[in-house]
């Protein structure tokens, strides 16, 4: 088992944000975390990444408990794409993706690091803008750069916090296709998503969070109108379009 979340509780001051979260993720699987705002999706990702420390419970990668990892080892193992990121003093696309090599570099980047970064930039289709400052790029391109930086960490677990939230339709699909293509290389991924149809299309497993607890977990079969209505308080229809599940929000309950 690649990633194992075992009885995780997280409190912020006295308020409980996550309560008894358990799940397992196998090699090469994509898990979509869904749930309304404030249901604990981002917090759970941050706990997996050790940005936050759960008060109870543990997170295991390949059976090893992550609190035993050295910070540098952890960064080689888990890549993270935050929901949004603002740089005060922007660097170029190449330099930003190169930051993903930080856990591997002592002081000077080696040829191997440059090759890995160039390959990722090539793969993401950013070669024409590799030397541009990232604040001169569109939202979609910036998001690709951040995914590129996480890929440069050569992680075994890739965490993405709403990677499509600010993107147009084309970029949403591009980003998720790209992530899906990378997963084949034995990366397991946890993606927090707001778009339920995209979640249905791109994930192997789904966890629905409500008030910090797992409301439902499993395959695509958990995306039922009853579950979604209970969690989102919105009446929804679930349609089948060309073999794909599409979730249509109807009206607030």
């Amino acid at each position: 088992m690649k990633l194992e979340i075992d009885g995780v509780h997280f409190n912020y001051q006295s308020q409980s944000v996550l309560e008894d979260v358990n799940f397992k993720l196998d090699h090469g699987e994509v898990l979509a975390l869904i749930g309304p705002n404030g249901s604990g999706k981002s917090t759970l990702l941050k706990c997996i990444n050790r940005i936050l420390k759960p008060q109870v419970g543990s997170i295991l990668i390949d059976g090893d408990i992550t609190t035993d990892y050295h910070q540098q080892e952890m960064a080689k193992c888990v890549g993270y794409v935050p929901q949004e990121e603002s740089k005060n003093f922007p660097t170029s696309v190449f330099e930003t993706v190169m930051m993903g090599r930080k856990p591997y570099i002592n002081f000077k980047a080696q040829d191997e690091d440059l090759e890995i970064v160039a390959a990722i930039i090539d793969e993401l289709g950013l070669e024409d803008i590799a030397q541009r400052n990232i604040n001169q790029l569109s939202g979609g391109q910036q998001q690709k750069v951040l995914v590129g930086r996480a890929l440069a960490q050569q992680p075994e677990v890739l965490l993405l916090d709403e990677p499509t939230s600010n993107l147009d339709l084309k970029h949403q699909l591009e980003i998720l296709n790209l992530i899906q293509a990378q997963i084949k290389d034995n990366i397991s991924s946890v993606i927090a998503l707001h778009d339920l149809s995209l979640a249905a299309r791109y994930s192997d497993k789904i966890i629905i969070l409500k008030d910090g607890k797992i409301f439902a977990a499993g395959g695509l079969e958990v995306l039922t109108p009853e579950n979604l209505e209970a969690v989102y308080e919105v009446e929804v229809s679930v349609a089948d379009v060309g073999g794909r599940k599409v979730i249509i929000p109807e009206r607030p309950i």
């Binding site: 940005i51 935050p82 990121e85």
Partner: peptide, 8 residues
């Protein structure tokens, strides 16, 4: 957050 996830 990003810095932490890069091992800083």
């Amino acid at each position: 957050e990003t810095a932490k996830s890069l091992g800083v």
